[in-house]
């Protein structure tokens, strides 16, 4: 096998390896969040009034801001990837910074949400309504922090590298993880705050 051939060949294999690995990770995470939503459904269907008596719905302002932040984070990351694909490192870097800023503001909005819930008298021990919101947001923030660390890592370690298939693949995988979490957030937003 000639060396050029071998390289292309390896590339296909790397692609396969990374996409199968990533699929398994996403399936695992889906089951994890799926279980949480299953629990949510049980609580929701077994409680007659929602939110339970004496509690009010959370103002949609902060959760909406959070939704915008994660979505923009996803969008900016994709734009950054597009520029990198076109070998434009400067714009790629700019949009990566923007998505990092979106990630940080996501965390900030969540922090504000927890504070505002405290002011409403909704603490972790106030009952299942508050428990659900706290647990879902904590778990989501924990995952998003991992994604954010990966964004930083992309900025520090990936960007300085030469743009090639391998580097772009790592970039894509990080993006996939973020998009997945954006999707999960969308469900959290609808089920826990809107409905």
């Amino acid at each position: 096998m000639s060396s050029v051939n071998a390289e292309i060949h390896n590339d296909i294999q790397d692609e396969l390896k990374s996409s199968i690995g990533m699929t398994v990770i996403l399936v695992s995470l889906m089951m994890f969040f799926g279980t949480l939503f299953f629990g949510y459904a049980v609580y929701r269907f077994t409680t007659e009034t929602w939110p339970p008596m004496g509690m009010q719905k959370i103002n949609l302002m902060l959760p909406s801001m959070t939704t915008i932040a994660v979505s923009l984070g996803s969008l900016f990351f994709e734009i950054s990837k597009k520029y990198l694909n076109k070998n434009n490192k400067i714009q790629g870097k700019n949009f990566l910074i923007l998505s990092i800023v979106m990630g940080l503001s996501y965390v900030f909005f969540q922090y504000l949400l927890w504070r505002s819930m405290g002011q409403l008298g909704l603490y972790t021990s106030t009952g299942i309504f508050a428990s659900l919101i706290y647990a879902f947001t904590w778990i989501h923030v924990a995952h998003m922090s991992m994604a954010l660390i990966l964004f930083f890592w992309a900025y520090i370690a990936l960007l300085p590298r030469e743009i090639n298939k391998k580097m772009l693949r790592s970039f894509t995988n990080i993006g996939t993880f973020w998009h997945f979490l954006s999707g999960i957030w969308f469900f959290i937003f609808i089920f826990l705050f809107v409905l």
Partner: peptide, 27 residues
């Protein structure tokens, strides 16, 4: 996911697995 919620119940006082007064706080 199950044991994580159990940890939350035990450490942070959430009420996922505590049966309680359903009408007031949700059970």
């Amino acid at each position: 996911a199950g044991v994580l919620l159990l940890i939350f119940d035990r450490v942070f006082g959430t009420t996922f697995f505590l049966a309680g007064a359903a009408a007031t706080s949700g059970s």
